[in-house]
Simulated scan of single mutants.
Amino acid sequence: MARVIAFVNQKGGVGKTTNTVNLAAIAGQALGIRSGQSQVLVVSTDPQASAVWWSDRVDEEQLPFDFHQCHDRPEDLARLKLLEQYEYVFVDSPGNIEDEKILSATLDSTDEVVVPLPPEAMAYQPTKRTIEQVLEPRGIPYRVLISDWDPRDGTVDLEQTQEYVDNHNWPRLMTVVRHYKIHTRASAEGQVCTQYPKGRIALEAREDFFRLAMELGIGGRPLPRQNRKQATERGTV
């Protein structure tokens, strides 16, 4: 069965699509192509279909994952874990996740949720609602990913956001995805992070997603759901 990881936050513009697509690219590259088939699937439940639009612009021969749009087909989402042809499925959710059927089907099929949180106060309350009103009542294993931090702004906002997460006792990923213009240009240019040109900036931008993949155990043997939940709560996975 596939391991399903969803990126969820009720606030838009927190980097769900960027993180979903680029983590899928790293996973696809790590697993390679076996028997001419991708081992990774990106699923978009966002009616804007940003992840699909981005993926569709990438050279088909270089795209290391398959993609599928199903914002209006909860029956497709309910079958995600049963997809034997894929090892990983990454789900990109919309900023507005009030569609109960889509949300329920997504979370029912999800092994773990990553909650992207940029280091800005405006994102705190939507993130809090997502965790406390959506994820925790369902017992969904989740971890917060601080994303889109611009090192040029200094570390004050980053440290305040880390403190905010820790004060709420939310499991937090140690990886921080930094802000780079190359990420914002990538969708228009039809690139994923594994295709970035050589250079220091591209290397640093890509490195964050390698770290994220390693921390999530991408490419390794996943723990059973119950054990993974316990390990997530301890912050050891």
Rank of each mutant, 00 (worst) to 15 (best):
R3G: 04
V4P: 02
V4S: 09
A6T: 14
F7G: 05
F7T: 05
Q10Y: 04
K11T: 00
G13L: 12
V14C: 12
K16M: 03
T18N: 10
V21S: 12
V21A: 04
L31R: 11
G32C: 13
S35I: 05
V40K: 00
V42G: 09
V42Y: 08
V52M: 07
R57N: 15
E75V: 15
D76P: 08
R79C: 11
L82R: 03
L83I: 08
Y86R: 05
E87M: 14
S93G: 10
I97Q: 13
E100D: 09
L103A: 05
S104G: 12
A105F: 06
T106Q: 04
T110K: 08
T110V: 07
E112A: 05
P119K: 13
A121N: 00
M122Y: 09
T130V: 04
P137E: 04
R143T: 02
R143K: 02
S147V: 01
D148Q: 15
P151S: 07
R152W: 12
R152G: 08
R152H: 11
G154Q: 13
T155Y: 13
D157S: 10
D157A: 14
Q162A: 10
E163M: 15
E163D: 11
N169E: 13
W170D: 01
L173I: 09
M174L: 13
T175K: 09
V176C: 12
V176F: 11
H183P: 09
T184V: 13
T184N: 14
A188E: 14
I201M: 11
E204H: 04
F209G: 09
F209N: 05
F210M: 02
A213D: 02
E215Q: 11
L216E: 00
G217A: 07
G220F: 07
E233I: 09
